[in-house]
């Protein structure tokens, strides 16, 4: 990074007391954020871990979590990009209101999100009868679990992509246009490519949020092994039956998420 010399000079200029305070706060933050993860790992019953993990329900839940989180990333990308584009590139009255509204699912209490989804897409929801006549049923289905995960995770995609779009020099798009590029080619080769890190961050955040999603899913889609019981739901059920299994599953979830996050934003995390 070109800025490194400047930023390190700035940090060296900080007076000692400020450095001590910042260092102490950083240490506290690290303890708060990292210690629970380590503690969870320490509590896991490693001696018979394999036997516990290879119970049929566990692998079902893992597979389902993969399907649901990946599908909701794809869906979030397909739906979040147009919204991010409208927010970043169009000026119209009510844009800030629209931004607030589409980001709202981030702050919904878990169950409220699920009830909201039921109110909209449940069989007695606003779209319920329309969807029924089309033969679509979301509650208690994997599709419903995907919708729930997308509902809560798509805002992360929108936020990332919007800031990414804003950071692209729009004159690059002008330059591409003078070189004969069509709108689609500009979108594909200049905009999407220019999104780079923002796209990676958006995918990572969305995927992580979808993977850990619990409240909206249990409320909207219920919990059915192999259909809607994702890893977090399985962990929640197991914790009251066998804490060891639950912790092990939790560790699996965390380790899996960490691996994917590292792979997606390796440059950012390892720099």
């Amino acid at each position: 990074m070109k800025q490194t010399p400047t930023s390190s000079r700035v940090s060296r200029r900080l007076i000692p007391s400020a450095r001590i305070v910042l260092g102490a706060l950083a240490f506290i933050a690290a303890v708060l954020l990292v210690l629970p993860v380590i503690a969870l790992g320490a509590r896991a019953p490693w001696s018979d871990a394999l036997a516990r993990l290879f119970r049929p329900g566990t692998l079902d839940a893992l597979r389902l979590s993969l399907v649901v989180s990946t599908a909701s990333v794809v869906l979030s990308l397909a739906l979040g990009f147009p919204i991010a584009w409208v927010l970043a590139r169009c000026t119209f009255p009510g844009r800030r209101i629209l931004r607030t509204l589409v980001l709202l699912p981030m702050v919904f209490p878990p169950v409220v999100g699920g009830v909201a989804l039921l109110a909209a897409f449940g069989s007695h929801g606003i779209c319920g009868s329309t969807m029924q006549s089309l033969g679509i049923r979301l509650p208690f289905t994997t599709a419903g679990a995907i919708v729930a995960a997308t509902f809560v995770s798509c805002p992360f995609m929108i936020l990332s992509l919007e800031s990414g779009l804003q950071s692209i020099d729009r004159r690059l798009e002008d330059a591409a246009a003078t070189l004969g590029a069509s709108d689609w080619m500009i979108l594909r080769r200049i905009v999407v490519r220019g999104l780079g890190p923002a796209l990676r961050a958006g995918i990572a955040l969305t995927w992580a949020r979808a993977l850990g999603e619990f409240g909206a899913t249990i409320t909207f889609a219920g919990s059915h092994p192999g259909r809607t019981r994702t890893l977090p739901l399985a962990v929640y059920e197991l914790i009251n039956v066998d804490v060891g299994d639950a912790i092990l599953l939790g560790v699996l979830l965390v380790a899996f998420a960490a691996a994917v996050l590292l792979a997606l934003s390796g440059k950012v995390l390892l720099r």
């Binding site: 009830v115 039921l118 449940g122 069989s123 007695h124 509650p139 208690f140 249990i218 409320t219 889609a221 219920g222 919990s223 059915h224 092994p225 809607t228 019981r229 739901l233 929640y236 059920e237």
Partner: peptide, 17 residues
């Protein structure tokens, strides 16, 4: 669905799902 508590069961029936 296998709900994590009885309230979940109640809500699903009350909401007609």
């Amino acid at each position: 669905s296998n709900e994590p508590d009885v309230r979940g069961v109640l809500m699903k029936i009350l909401l007609g799902e």
